[in-house]
Amino acid sequence: MYRWDFAPVLANADLLLQGLVNTLAVTGTALAFGIPLGLALALARLSGRRLLAWPAGFVIEFFRTTPPLVQLFWFFFALPVLIRVEMTPFMASALTFSIQSSAFFAEVFRGGIVSVERGQWEASRALGMTPSQSMRRIILPQAVKRMIPAFMERAIELMKTTTLVAIVSYADLLYQANEIAQKTFRPLEVFTVVAGIYFVVILMISLLARRLERRLAVSGESTVH
């Protein structure tokens, strides 16, 4: 019978905490760049101008279709050779997941934008708004609200996907777990605790997202019926 012993894990709690901070840092960075980039890609894809729509469509489809780990390897191992820059694990990770998540966010944005009724475009155009004014003042505010569930889901997916950065030795939570497991010979306890930490953090974000959705659903005055 295996005798569980969590003491070695607790003794390394500071490393795990540092790992969690790093996980949040790479997730946050990817969100900070991925969301605006995703919006830009979505607008380019919807622009109706082939010179914009086509490259945007390709970036979106390519990054949604290829495995994120392959992308990460490309940015970490291949890109530095190609452009001759030092690539730290953090830079490669932030770059990969900013672009990767932007491809997914682009589709969330696009879905939200096209879900807004045509009449909203017409009414704003009929007032004399330019296309960009209509988009900013009338369409996006309505689209963003409808996007929130898909958006939270994507953010959670992103956080889970960032565990891949451990493979290129960025010291995220999973990487630290692996280090501690090798140091203490307690992989069972370490990986169980780390799985638990991810579960709790992600579950908390999910619950928060669900509360937010319900709040928005209740404040019905600004929803379309």
């Binding site: 295996y2 959670i156 956080m159 889970k160 996907t161 565990t163 891949l164 451990a166 493979i167 999973l174 777990a177 692996n178 497991a181 992989p187 069972l188 370490v190 990986f191 169980t192 780390v194 799985a195 991810y198 579960f199 992600i202 579950l203 999910s206």
Partner: peptide, 23 residues
């Protein structure tokens, strides 16, 4: 469902590879 949806799959794989053999 809740557990496996809310934990990263790579953590699950490493758990099965490094942790499960202990059990």
């Amino acid at each position: 469902v809740e557990f496996f949806r809310n934990t990263p799959v790579l953590v699950q794989i490493l758990w099965f590879y490094f942790a499960l053999p202990m059990l």
